[in-house]
Structure formats: C-alpha cells, structure tokens
Amino acid sequence: MRVLVVDDEIRMAGLVRRGLEEEGYAVDVAHDGPEAVWLGTENTYDAIVLDVMLPGFDGFEVCQRLRQANRWAPVILLTARGEVDDRVRGLDAGADDYLVKPFSFAELGARLRAVTRRGQAARPAVLAVGDLKLNPATRRAWRGDDELSLSPKEFALLELFLRHPGEVLTRTRLLEHVWDFAYDGLSNVVDQYVGYLRRKIDRPFGRNDLETVRGAGYRLRVTAS
C-alpha cells in the first residue's frame, strides 16, 4: 500500500512516515500544498494523510484540486484544527475522514484500513451529469449557469437521479429513497414530483432529459455535454 503523507512540520511528517513504514506501507512525504498536489497527481496512492495548515495552499484546497484532477485516493485529514466548522469544511471539500491531533497511531492505522476498504470510485462532492450540477452540501443545483429553485423533495429526487445517471429507477425505489417509512400516501406522489421536477429542470430549457420508461420507471438521460 502506498501512502502520501503531507505535513509541514518535518518532525511530524517524519514520525508518521516511520510509523507507517513499520506497518508495511510505502510512504512518500510532501511538506507543502503544491508539492502535495504534484505528487498526488503524478502518482497513484492508496491513501493520503493530509495536514490542513500547509504553506502554499491549505489541505482543503489540496483535496479539492486532487478531486478536480480526478484523483480519487481516499484522503484522511490529520490536523490540529478540530472545530466543527473545520471538520465540516474538510469533509465537504472531498476528504473521506478527519482525525484531530494529538492522535494515536492505532487509530490512524485503523482509519487508513477503513478508508482503503472503500475503494477508489469517483466520489465527487458535487454531482454533475451533462450540464446538470448539484451540490448536496450547499443544497443548490444548476443547469448550466442557471440556478434551479427546488423544494427539498424535488432536490432529493434530482440527487438520486444524478447518482444513478442513465439507470432506470422504479417508482418503488424512488419512493423508498426519497420518502421515509412513515409515508402513508399514494404511490403516485412519485409521478407528481417527477412532474414537478420536469417542469423545473426540463421544460424551461426545452429539454427532455428526465424520461418515462413505460412499465418500469424513470431515467435521467446522460447527454454528451
């Protein structure tokens, strides 16, 4: 397993490297933001241990740049900044885990293992299919440059479609994932809301991406953009 460790404190970086090497990892070290992005883009790592306070640009930005460059190595942020705001920001920037210093090696090891189990599928923080874009953290969505104004249910529905582009989603599945167990209404609420959604994302733009598949369900078409 190859790991990139990024920390500007030489002592800290050295210790983490030593600790991980003793557990059998192959470790590269970077001491600033630009170096981290360069190494992360050039090489494929199984995991990245990333400090937040770095010279150049900070760990949050390193993470964003790597994701933009389509590098999906799992990132554990390892930092002394432990406020809730920092953690939210880090995770929304595309990190997979957040560990506050002082930390224990045992925990770092366990989290590394947990995070590498998940694999390296593309896991963008912001969903995008064609010119539709949706940011689950900020609850905003766009088609092209136009921002869409969606109700919470419409938003949740669009999010589900964007997570399964080109797939047929049955009414049951839509109902189960967007409405909760307590929902006791008619199942044509799904049809209703797909209608609302179409009226907001397709009709004003003269598009027809949200299609009905007769007898099966609905599908969001993947158009080449």
């Binding site: 404190e9 800290m12 003793e22 002394a80 930390f103």
Partner: peptide, 20 residues
C-alpha cells in the same frame, strides 16, 4: 490551543512508536 496540539502530537507519536 492549536499551537499546543502540535508538540503534543509529536510527543505522543514519539512515545507510541517507541512503545511498539
């Protein structure tokens, strides 16, 4: 608090590794 965390983390890491 932030400044104190870094040397503490180093101290702890040093000792944890030494304890292996």
């Amino acid at each position: 608090a932030h400044e104190l965390r870094t040397p503490l983390a180093i101290l702890r890491a040093e000792l944890e590794l030494a304890g292996r």
